[in-house]
Design a protein around this nucleic acid. Structure first.
Lengths: 340, 340
DNA sequence: ACTTGGCACTCCGTCCACGGGAGTGCCAAG
DNA sequence: CTTGGCACTCCCGTGGACGGAGTGCCAAGT
């Protein structure tokens, strides 16, 4: 049914359409690719591909454009990975390694991704829920105000100030600090919460309400953070690449970029850093984005995927190049997180 | 030269044009406003206003639209402040007060601003350079790795990890912590840097290189942060309100939104929280944004302006409403920062 | 059985001419 | 100084004509 030449034709159609943004006809196809057959033959193949739903024509007697199904076949079967140039690789690693803290890493990553793919880039902050507690720090700002700092293995630092019911002295703070760290350090955040609640009971009655207050706040910080809704967006200027139909391609995208919750759904579950998720057109869950594709992958220190990063662009995009860039950036940022 | 009626006519033109987005003619003006004169009279006034450069016509025999100079006169002389409704005020304060940390405050502020003005909102993070050191915290992550946390009076927390030349014990860390805090707490950041450098000398020779390393990092953190380039953008979906001319109004705006440095210039110097800066069309420094206006003001705890917030929108915008909203949000966020 | 050249057909996009409509400028009268 | 009248200008939407690109099908060739 789908012999090799038909696949070649499909590939050629996808490539030409991505390059020119215009429906591609049989004539221009044979001109620009060495298919070794005549336009008439190509027409027959195109008719067959259309019957199978891989391509379609915007109107009778126009050229063909790939359908979502066509792109899907293209990325699944017809794509050979297009490795980045050495210069690009060097640029990525040196740029990412210049970062000094987690915020900086994330910022630079999103920038790099947007620049390489010339698409809108999205990077989710490393999730705390899968990472572990590295340290809990308490700082008395005044006798009745305490600053809590939570440091996770992913390098994320979360802080909050809490008002205490009673004044505390430095000894109690030190005691709290020691016990909280003993209970929580090394634990995954989800377990740390449950471990912490028990700690209050082991304080003398006088201090118990203070301890409970601190622990409550800490647990709240942990669960707040587990919602994982922080992300950074970059390359919105590449929206101009989405096409000329502002109302139906750019406007809905702008709406979605405001809704971080929606974006997180778009990125999908964090997959392993070496696995790319590609969702083409209707394959992603939002109808308004029916001509939009998502290329995403997980990243994080070690082999574990703590969070997701990726790009969003028109279905009509350079999949091989984009996929290579997303994968490469995910690898490099994972390495950087590993080191720190 | 400009009698009262001409000013009335100008105001009516601005209001109608902002509302309808279409050139306004003499007939529709007298229909929609009680000017008490005939269209012909209005035409004479319009001719005069055009001679003076306050309005212009896109083509012969079309209605008039305001020029930048016209808008300028409008905001300077013809605008009466349009106070927010009680419901709006309540919404702002309750929404902003729900924030638990500085990030949260900034996020919510930008969201609120975008929602109230239906424009693109920009909020600069409170500048550290004008704020003071509240606390310095050191945490030994391992014998030779130290986490430095810097907390400023504006509630901003900055952290960084540094590698030490030698192993340190808890006593040295405590000593460092005490001395650094003694030297820096309460100081403005600019002074804190100079104060800190002297501290290293007062350590015994064995520890001096470690102390110097820590102080170097701290000074670096301070000066890095003094660059003040962090800001948050919201309401980009309101870009669709910029008009139909994608290429010349939306695209350049998208470019600019990527360049935070440019945005900071656009916002301008932080003015006092009660003073609004309005830049109309060509009055702002970027040619590509010639049909864009900026409404900005400073904000911060107390009367001092630590940073700037504002909105960017088409010159054709509702100035009274926008100005009221920007001012109100700046006041409320200042209050919130004051409390915390 | 597949490939190829030929040919008629379809449909889009563009150009152009046309007319209605909104708005202006000017003038003369109140 | 204001007002009604009037001729004029120019935009913009509509509709028909036309060229071009591309298709589908058929009959002949390999």
């Amino acid at each position: 049914m789908l012999d090799d030449r038909k696949l070649d034709v499909l590939r050629a159609i996808v490539e030409d359409y991505v390059a020119t943004q215009e429906p591609v006809g049989s004539k221009s196809l044979v001109d620009r690719h060495q298919l070794g057959v005549s336009p008439a033959t190509v027409r027959n193949d195109m008719a067959a591909l259309e019957d199978d739903g891989f391509i379609t024509q915007p109107h009778t007697s126009a050229g063909r454009i790939p359908t979502d199904k066509g792109y899907r076949l293209f990325v699944d079967k017809l794509t050979t990975v297009k490795p980045l140039t050495a210069a690009e690789k060097r640029a990525i690693s040196s740029f990412l390694e210049g970062a000094h803290d987690l915020d900086d890493v994330v910022q630079r990553t999103v920038r790099m991704l947007a620049q390489l793919t010339r698409q809108v880039a999205i990077v989710q902050y490393p999730s705390l829920s899968k990472s572990t507690v590295r340290h809990v720090e308490l700082v008395a700002l005044s006798p009745s105000r305490l600053l809590l700092v939570l440091i996770s293995s992913s390098g994320r630092v979360e802080q909050r100030v809490t008002e205490l019911p009673d004044a505390v002295d430095e000894a109690l703070v030190a005691d709290l600090r020691a016990r909280l760290n003993a209970a929580a350090v090394g634990q995954r955040l989800s377990e740390a919460s449950t471990r912490l609640v028990g700690v209050a009971d082991r304080f003398p009655p006088d201090d118990r309400s203070t301890a409970a207050r601190v622990i409550d706040t800490l647990v709240e910080m942990i669960s707040d953070e587990r919602s994982d809704d922080r992300l950074v967006i970059g390359g919105t200027n590449n929206l101009s690449r989405f096409g000329d139909d502002f109302e139906h391609s750019i406007k809905p995208m702008l709406e979605v970029l405001e809704e971080h919750v929606v974006l997180l759904k778009l990125l999908g579950e964090a997959s392993s850093p070496s696995m790319l998720t590609v969702r083409i057109g209707h394959e992603q869950p939002y109808q308004e984005l029916s001509s939009t594709s998502v290329v995403a992958t997980g990243y994080g220190p070690g082999a574990e995927a703590l969070a997701t990063l990726g790009i969003v662009g028109p279905t009509r995009m350079d999949y091989p190049g984009t996929m290579a860039a997303v994968r490469a950036v995910a690898r490099y940022v994972s390495n950087v997180l590993d080191d720190s």
